[in-house]
Design a protein around this nucleic acid. Structure first.
Lengths: 151, 151
DNA sequence: AAAGGACAAAAATATTGCTTTTTGTCGCTT
DNA sequence: AAGCGACAAAAAGCAATATTTTTGTCCTTT
């Protein structure tokens, strides 16, 4: 009995969703109540609550519903083990992107593309490359022109 | 003399850029050689190399040149202390977004918008909310219908 | 109270055509 | 080898429009 079972009123209070949203999300399958009463009324489980609240937060952070849906779609593909991404996963967001942290990795929830390379490491990398060129060094010293660049 | 000074050939080898790109980037001010020889030839400093390679990596990760330029523009606004973002900053990327890690924070290089909320914390939060509702609990046990939802 | 339907405003997305940017290639000069 | 210029293809961005999704409001039914 870890579940708990919440009525519509309770859910509205706990999630700060509008009644319309709750209905619509249910109808369109974004978050459905875990069970239904004999009278056809929704009963939301605790995990449903978490999912609803997560979706709400994503919305508030500027992620559109449609993007949320697409992310969920993708995630079932990339992480089939994650049954309910909105409940289980660790997400980070701006308006345009949803990042999923999973183990050591981070990837885009939508495209699955992995996020990469702390560029800090690049200096070291170039340094290594530098050693592959035996001949170069302080060969040139003249500096006739200073740059006025962007980067 | 931490600089080092690299000829065009060396730079091409080290950065895996095309000759055309090197020229164009120089002309458009993305990354310019630190100094010029009496004959008008480019001499790239070590930091230039790092900048070039960083830009190349961003490109490879799917960030367009134009976006890179705009990011650099923004960064000089958000982090005026960062003289050469491509050399100094710690960036993370997908095709659409460049994230900058700076101290404790992470923000979008383009918009400056801060990134937020590990959603993992949500469960705990809802649990807390739950306690504000004294009346609910395992009041309902009937489950007549299983859901077939997305999340 | 909860669900469902209907209508409309707002928000988001997709599409299309147009402009600008980036890159490659060739040829010429130093 | 390095730089410069010109032409063209590819990629990216932009703006205006159409289409779809989401949400609110009102009304009816159980």
């Amino acid at each position: 009995m870890t579940q708990g079972s919440f009525s519509r009123q309770q859910v509205l209070k706990l999630t700060e969703l509008s009644s319309r949203q709750l209905s619509y999300w249910r109808k369109t399958g974004l978050v459905c109540p875990q069970s239904i009463t004999p009278g056809g009324h929704a009963r939301y489980a605790f995990t449903d609550l978490v999912a609803l609240r997560t979706a709400k937060r994503l919305l508030d952070a500027g992620v559109s519903l449609q993007r949320i849906r697409r992310c969920l779609d993708s995630l079932t593909r990339f992480l089939p083990a994650a049954d309910r991404p909105l409940v289980e996963l660790s997400l980070v967001v701006t308006g345009d992107v949803v990042l999923v942290f999973h183990g050591e990795r981070a990837f885009d929830a939508l495209t699955g593309q992995e996020w990469v390379f702390p560029i800090a490491e690049l200096a070291a990398e170039v340094e290594k490359l530098q050693q592959q060129l035996p001949e170069q060094g302080e060969l040139f010293s003249a500096e006739y022109n200073k740059r006025g660049e962007l980067a």
